[in-house]
Design a protein around this nucleic acid. Sequence first.
DNA 1: CCAAAAGTGTTATGAATACACCCATGC
DNA 2: GCATGGGTGTATTCATAACACTTTTGG
Lengths: 212, 212
Amino acid sequence: MPALPGGFLNHAGEEILDAAHRELSEETALVAGCVHLEQLATYGGAGRDPRGRVVSVAHLAIAPGLPEPVAGTDAVDAAWVPADAVLSGEVELAFDHRRIVTDGIERARTKLEFSALATAFCGELFTIAELQQVYEAVWGTELDTRNFYRKVQAVKGFIVPAGPGRRTTGGRPARLYRAGPKSVLSPPLIRPVPSRTEEDTGTEEDTREEGD
Amino acid sequence: MPALPGGFLNHAGEEILDAAHRELSEETALVAGCVHLEQLATYGGAGRDPRGRVVSVAHLAIAPGLPEPVAGTDAVDAAWVPADAVLSGEVELAFDHRRIVTDGIERARTKLEFSALATAFCGELFTIAELQQVYEAVWGTELDTRNFYRKVQAVKGFIVPAGPGRRTTGGRPARLYRAGPKSVLSPPLIRPVPSRTEEDTGTEEDTREEGD
DNA sequence: CCAAAAGTGTTATGAATACACCCATGC
DNA sequence: GCATGGGTGTATTCATAACACTTTTGG
C-alpha cells in the first residue's frame, strides 16, 4: 500500500523545514529553490503506526512539472498519484496518510485565494491563462477568462510583466509574467460559491425551495 | 523571563491534542470542553532551547473569561499578559515564544473571518453586541453595530436564537444567542483592511526565522 | 420624561459578473 | 480569409457602508 514520502530528523539539530527539503529531494528530483514547501500540521499519538509512537510533521510541497521520482533510500516504487484518486478512496494510502492528503489539499485550495501560492505551480515565466488553469485545477471550477485576466492584474504585486516575450499556442500570443513580490493577496481571489468544505460539525442545510 | 506553558508528551502514546489539554489544565483552570484548542504549528531545530533539541507543537487556546492561573508543576509565577504587550515587545518571552504568539494571534484574526471561532470567546449564551466586542478586540478595529447585527445573522448556522431570554445592560434588553451548527462561515465576515488600496511592503514570505 | 442600548429601513457607492467586442497570430 | 485564443469595454446586478430612525428598558 503506498504511503507519503518521509523520514526522520537527523542528529545535528536540523531545522524541520530543512529536513523536509532533504527528504523530498532524496525521493524525487525536487530540490529546494524550485519547490515551495510549507508546514501543514503535526500528527501524533498512538495507533498511527503499528511499529510504535511516531510524531510526523507533515509538509505541503508545490512545484511546476512532474519530475519522475528517483529510486532513493526506500522509494523504489515511487509514483505520482492524482489527488482525486486519494480523495475518492480509489487509491488507498497507509497509516493516516489519507487524512494528511485531505488536509493538504484543503490548505492548497484556501491558500490560493489569499496568497500567491498559485505561481509556485508555474514555471518562472507563465501566461495568465496558465495561471488560470492552476486555479481551475485546484479549485475544480471554471472561471471566466476575461474577468480572471483583470482580477489577477488588479492585485498589485501578485504578478509582474516579464519583458516583451510572448508565448503562442495557436491564437494570439500571450504576454509573459513572473511572480511578483507580494505573497499575500489583497484583495484576495475569492473562489466561487461551491460552499467551502465543512470542517467538523458543519452541516450544510440548504433549505431552498423551488417554486413552480 | 516568562514563557508559554507547555510540557512533554507522556509515555502512553498520548494524542498530541490530549497532551495539550492536559498541560493547559495543569497550569490554568481551563479544562477540555470549556476551551477551544487547536494545533498552531510545530517549531523545531537547533538553537530554540539552549538545553538541547526540543520540538514543540504549539497550540492556540480560546476560552471565555480569564480564570486565575493555578500554581501547578512549574507555574508558580503564572500570569495573564495582554497580547499587545507581547506583540509590542513590552513583555519579552523566552526562547522563540514571541514568534509563536505572533503566529497564534494572526491565526485567530484570520479564523475569525471564516470560522465560528468567535463564539468560543463567549459563554454558552451571548448577545450580538458581545460577539461584536470579540471581533473588535481581536481585530483591533471598530465595527458599525447596526451592520454587524445583520451581517452576523445573515450567515446561516453561525448563531441561533436561544429562547425568550434577554440580557439587559442599561438600555433595551438584548436577545440571547448560542453558537450554531456551522463552523465555517459563508459568506465570511471580512475584516476591514487598513490599506487595501495602497501599496505596502507585503513581502511576507514563509521564511520562519528562528530567534533564540 | 430622558438616557441608553437594541434593533430596523433606506440609500449611495463600489465591486463582481456576464457578455459583446476588438486584436494578433497560424494556416 | 478564417479559426483560435489573447485582451478590452461596459452595463447590470448585488453586496456593502453609512446613517436616520424606531423600540424597549431603567431611573
